[in-house]
Amino acid sequence: MLNYEESKKVVFKGLILLAVVTLIEVAIALIGNGHIIEGMHWPKWLMYPLMISLSLYKAYFIVYEFMHMRYEVRGLSLSVLMPTVLLVWGLIAFANEGMHWNTSRAQIKEKNAIGLKSDGQSSKSSSEIHSSEVPATEAPATH
């Protein structure tokens, strides 16, 4: 444990640190999206990991210093922090699902469009767009 004067210092160091990290995050968002320098756009694969890791650092700092996790018994910090690992797979699975809904919606739309067209006159476009999915394009024709 730190004594009173030391821990007072940690607090104001923490304030400056959190403020600076937040500013860096906002700066990345603004510069990366071309608000500061006209026409400058950073790719998402650069910006997102940066902002996510800075946020995780902030979270770590809040939990470890402000919530005093650093000074707790190891068992306590493990018992609180370990369960959050369970969220990792949740995050992966939900994200994957979200993208899957997106693609399957787009596919359904495409198929519907093709179905409408093949009912009418142009069956040419359907084979062009989706030559790989023969059953889907042929289904409306058999009805």
Binding site: W89, A93, H100
Partner: peptide, 23 residues
């Protein structure tokens, strides 16, 4: 631990991505 990472096996027929179903 495992109970938290298997939930979608209740939903194989609900339109879950077949790829993630493998896991």
């Amino acid at each position: 631990f495992l109970s938290f990472i298997v939930w979608a096996h209740h939903m194989f027929m609900a339109g879950v991505n077949p790829f993630i179903s493998n896991f």
